[in-house]
Computed example of a mutant assay.
Amino acid sequence: MAGQATATPSAGGSDTSPTALARDLLVACKRGDSTASLRATLAALDDSALRPLREDRRTALAFWLNCYNAGTQLLLGERPELYDSPLGFVRFFWAPAITVAGTSLSLDRIENGLLRGGRSKYGLGYLPKLLVSTFEQRYRLSGCDPRVHFALNCGAESCPAIRAYEPEQIDRQLDLATRSYLEATVAYDADENLVRVPRVCLWFRGDFGGASGIRAFLREYDAIPADSTPKIRYLSWDWTKATGKFVE
């Protein structure tokens, strides 16, 4: 399927655009191919090469989503002890995962400093991120598209499956990822006027616009009836490690 992780890497490595490199790195992770050359090329990019990320939101979304998901797979493959550690919630998400233009980035910095526009992972999505680097200020997206929460895979069983995202298809792909995940997880009970939703909707409640925003989001994706206003409960999250959870 176009845009998924079955995409073919650039022939002979001829396409060294940031988005192609991030996509090809993710595909190499899926296939178990060597990633050394792609990682080195991403690390060697300069500010001018990253200009498309500053100029086009779709390009930035695709690039950072692919970087995050590739970074997760690289950490799980090369440093699995971080995830398994009693302090895994800190050590895994703060460990260097991928280097872009000479800047070492953790999963936390990619998700919260860049994709979420500099929002803290604490405070249910309502608070700004306090420690923001110059790199994050330069390349972060403005605002937060809540659909990214159904595209990011941190290695847990409850995480969504991984796709390789393309700038030209990013809206369609994010809609597909969101709808697929909500269909698999959301449970609506008309008799109890209750809906159970993924826990990321609680952790990042502010990204969705609070309870009313969550309901509007669910209606948009047909997860609850258009005329319903159910009570919201949050499902538990299964942190069991699940490596290589790619869309086929």
Rank of each mutant, 00 (worst) to 15 (best):
A5I: 13
T6H: 13
G13L: 04
S14C: 00
T16P: 04
S17T: 15
A20F: 08
A22M: 13
L26C: 15
L26G: 14
V27D: 09
K30N: 12
R31G: 07
G32E: 03
T35S: 10
A36L: 02
S37I: 08
R39H: 02
L42G: 12
L42P: 07
A43F: 04
A43Q: 09
A44N: 10
L45P: 11
D46R: 09
S48M: 02
A49R: 13
A49W: 05
L50M: 07
L53P: 08
E55L: 14
R57G: 05
R57Q: 12
T59P: 03
A60I: 01
A62C: 03
W64D: 11
W64R: 06
W64G: 07
L65W: 00
N66I: 10
N66S: 09
A70Y: 15
L76G: 14
G77N: 14
R79S: 12
P80T: 03
E81W: 04
P86M: 02
G88W: 12
G88Q: 10
F89N: 12
F89A: 13
V90K: 06
F92D: 13
P96C: 05
P96T: 01
A97Q: 11
T99S: 15
G102W: 07
S106A: 06
R109Q: 15
R109A: 15
I110K: 03
E111M: 04
G113S: 10
G113R: 05
G117Q: 05
G118E: 12
G118T: 07
K121N: 11
G125I: 02
Y126A: 02
L127V: 11
K129Q: 15
T134L: 09
T134E: 12
F135R: 06
Q137T: 13
R138L: 06
R138N: 13
R140I: 07
L141N: 06
L141Y: 10
S142H: 07
S142G: 12
V148S: 00
F150V: 02
A151N: 07
A151I: 01
C154D: 08
E157H: 14
E157S: 14
C159L: 01
I162K: 01
R163P: 04
A164I: 06
P167N: 01
Q169V: 00
I170W: 03
R172V: 01
Q173T: 03
Q173N: 00
L176A: 13
L176C: 03
A177H: 00
A177P: 02
A177C: 10
V186F: 05
Y188P: 11
D189L: 08
E192M: 09
P198W: 03
C201M: 15
L202G: 03
L202S: 03
F204Q: 00
G210N: 06
F217K: 11
L218G: 07
R219P: 08
D222K: 11
P225V: 01
A226S: 12
D227L: 01
S228G: 04
K231E: 09
L235Q: 09
S236I: 00
S236L: 05
D238P: 05
G244L: 08
K245G: 00
